[in-house]
Amino acid sequence: MAATVRYDEVEQGQEIPAADYQVRRANLVMYAGASGDFNPIHWNERFAKAVGLPDVIAHGMYTMAQAGRFLTDWAGDPGAVVDYGVRFSSMVVVPDDDEGATITVSGVVEEKLDDKRVLVGLTARSGDSRVLSRARAVVQLS
């Protein structure tokens, strides 16, 4: 149970290369089922538009999960994440087509903390919008 990234080999300001994650309507249906969040704004275009949204939007937690995946893929051990928080700053609109939307996640080691921990800042964008802000995690490195 340990991160594959070594604290001594990480520098403050170090960037974690960006990765793209597709989100299609089917992903939102799966996420609704797995998470238990069946709010129709995440799967019913008619309902979403009736409550003033541009279209079906992704669950914020789906986007947070993609940034979490980015983080755990970097750290090498999901158990190494000791704190993870985000603000949902913009919606991920998911059109009803084969492409869906793309969430692009990147990261930077903002600070080296005590006890071989680091503060990682995450950026998530979809289209022209920054969809997460104040997205930060504390990761226990080796």
């Binding site: 709010n39 704190d83 928080g85 949902f88």
Partner: peptide, 17 residues
């Protein structure tokens, strides 16, 4: 009113996996 609810912020502090 749940129809008007969206998620604003979320944070997890993990004490163990």
């Amino acid at each position: 009113n749940f129809a008007m609810v969206v998620h604003g912020e979320q944070r997890f502090e993990y004490h163990r996996p």
